[in-house]
Design a protein around this nucleic acid. Structure first.
Ligand SMILES: [Zn+2]
Ligand SMILES: [Zn+2]
Ligand SMILES: [Zn+2]
Ligand SMILES: [Zn+2]
Lengths: 171, 171
DNA sequence: GGTATGATTGTTATAGTATAACATGTCAAG
DNA sequence: CTTGACATGTTATACTATAACAATCATACC
């Protein structure tokens, strides 16, 4: 589902730069389209709840707690019990369409679903924006450190808390 | 509080290699001694609860949940309400004597308190051992990734889940 | 179409993690 | 001895997450 104007699209060219001003309507619509394609490809179903949860996560470059999502869902006529939110979030995470931000006990939409990527996150404590950063070099360094003791990495959590450019100015 | 036999002491020479067999009695006693020195240096107090919590965390190279610690404390005559454990754990974390493992919602003793170190953790899902790994290169890579978007890192969470050497053999 | 099958959602109940707020106790400085 | 700062104990509550089962929906097959 790659589209034709990659060079002109901040949301596609630098999807990890959530801090920069960009055409977010496009940014999120694109992520949603890619998600739909991916799910179809795998023969899975992006059901109404799942799709709506993804849309909610895509509204902003933030992380939302499961109960925040649940409140939204309930207000829209979906079930209002925790498993409704957690199941949708778990599905999205398993399919690489959302990520869990452990420092925040919250979830954020994946900004480049489908692309194999070891996720690293930049979390601004000023504006709460969460950005995905290119993490291949980080993973390589971590692999190297682990390899020294013969440890084999299966999954990793890499999160940085700090200030985005705008919030540095404000401070 | 560096001592004299650094070359002969696995617990000191390679404190990040919690997976390897080593003289853990020494390993933990040494960490405790360093912690005491550090706290005294800062004019703070390693009170009975705090000291006991650190000892408990030092018993094994594992992470313990706050409620696990609390159960132990209560059995030993300390308070049996959550804040008793959380306050001690928070103190230890603030002083760099313990680390929070976010993936496990648990805490582990710091294996080289006093030394400035950006923590990275290797968590074995087989035996639950948690090791601190040298993380300077990892942090450098993360800083580089963040720097591209002008993000300034203040704190970071770097955790890898996988299998230690022994558990790879077992599998 | 009708039905068997598995996947999805809804619901109840409960487990696990963490903090706010206030009372009590300890200790050292003045 | 009093004072003030810090530390601990306690009550209550908030927040995060999952187990277990019932009802519903979608699909494939006859
Ligand atoms: Zn965007
Ligand atoms: Zn910001
Ligand atoms: Zn040890
Ligand atoms: Zn192991």
């Amino acid at each position: 589902m790659a589209h034709s104007h990659i060079d002109a699209c901040p949301g596609c060219e630098a999807p990890d730069l959530a801090f920069a001003a960009h055409d977010h309507a496009h940014c999120s619509a694109d992520a949603l389209a890619r998600a739909e394609a991916l799910v179809a490809e795998k023969g899975l179903r992006l059901t109404p709840v799942r799709r709506r949860v993804l849309e909610i996560l895509l509204e902003e470059h933030r992380a939302l707690g499961a109960y925040d999502v649940l409140t939204r869902l309930a207000a829209e006529g979906f079930g209002n019990q925790p498993p409704v939110a957690y199941r949708a979030l778990d599905f999205l995470e398993e399919q690489g369409l959302a990520h869990r931000i452990r420092r925040l006990n919250a979830f954020t939409a994946c900004m480049h679903p489908g692309e194999a990527h070891a996720p690293a996150f930049l979390i601004c404590r000023g504006c709460n924006v969460v950005a995905e950063a290119p993490a291949a070099p980080v993973m390589a360094a971590l692999q190297a450190a682990a390899g020294q003791s013969g440890f084999v990495i299966e999954r990793s959590t890499i999160e940085a808390l700090g200030l985005c450019p705008s919030c540095q100015v404000a401070a």
